[in-house]
Write a protein that binds this DNA or RNA. Structure first.
Length: 274
DNA sequence: CACTCTCCCTGAAAGC
DNA sequence: TGCTTTCAGGGAGAGT
């Protein structure tokens, strides 16, 4: 599932392959995604040049030279691949951009939780997707002072906090469990009860984890691929996620799975403390 | 306002 | 073997 590292890997693998290129035409196949596509999408992208590509949270954004910006979100199974002209379309390919260098940019999403949208670049940051956003964990804004202020008086589990996009961007279910394991904090611990040292350790762990995952090309449990259709390798480095019943690599306690807010959380009850 | 719950969707895996 | 049920996940919006 594309979380921050996967979207970052996709962004890095795609950026230089599309910047400066022109979108010659565009095709939408029958099914809609999370939202229906803007009825003027075709008109807005045709004959435009991609001038900038960047990531905000789990969104990938293309600035076009006609003051429009295309936004992608990948939900659970969304993929964006840039393929050669002889590419044969596959099941769940929903959208295709034909580029001036004869390559095809394809959005594929089996579960259709992803979305593609387009806005005028001037109004981009005022769209609902970007309202009330927290800080990016790889930015300097993600400091001890910041996190401490956001945890204050919160009587909810720390795991829910780090997955809350109003506080911290881009942490999904995999990296939530993994970062709490690295920082030796129980996912059940209430946010208000974290000590200053634990807050600092958590920040350090999140940064380390995300940077390592990016370096390894992201985590591919089932679906994730970069723009070359290549999976990541970080799944081999996971300590707790999807390891229910297996031994903790550090203390040999069996990893357990619990449910928090309807989502699975994996932890080692020996290494991680309340 | 703070927080929780439900729903959208498909396909793999588990259950019967 | 084959059908049915369960589960996984991000985020919007409804509900408490």
């Amino acid at each position: 599932m594309p979380e921050l590292p996967e979207v970052e890997v996709l962004y890095r693998s795609l950026k230089n392959r599309v910047i400066g290129h022109k979108i010659i035409s565009f095709v939408q196949f029958c099914k809609s995604l999370r939202y229906d596509l803007d009825p003027n999408f075709l008109k807005k992208v045709t004959n435009s040049y991609i001038i900038k590509v960047y990531r905000i949270a789990k969104y990938l954004i293309f600035n076009l030279n006609n003051n429009n910006s295309v936004i992608f979100h990948f939900g659970i199974t969304g993929k964006l691949t840039l393929m050669k002209q002889n590419y044969l379309f596959q099941k769940h390919d929903h959208i295709a951009f034909y580029m001036d260098n004869a390559e095809i940019l394809i959005f594929n999403d089996s579960r259709r939780f992803g979305m593609v949208d387009i806005f005028s670049t001037n109004n981009l940051t005022s769209q609902k997707y970007f309202k009330n956003m927290g800080v990016d964990p790889l930015s300097d804004q993600f400091s001890g002072e910041y996190l401490k202020s956001r945890l204050k008086n919160k009587k909810i589990a720390i795991k829910s906090i780090i997955m809350d996009n109003k506080i911290l961007l881009g942490i999904g279910n995999i990296y939530a469990s993994e970062s709490l394991f690295l920082s030796k904090i129980s996912p059940l611990k209430l946010a208000k009860d974290l000590k200053k040292s634990e807050i600092l350790e958590l920040i350090k762990s999140i940064r380390l984890l995300l940077n390592q995952a990016i370096k390894e090309g992201g985590t591919t449990i089932k679906d994730f691929v970069n723009s070359y259709n290549k999976p990541g390798k970080f799944q081999q480095k996971l300590n707790v996620y999807a390891r229910k019943g297996l031994d903790c690599y550090f203390c040999h306690t069996k990893i357990i799975k619990i449910t928090q807010k309807g989502r699975s959380t994996y932890l080692c009850t020996t290494c991680q403390r309340m």
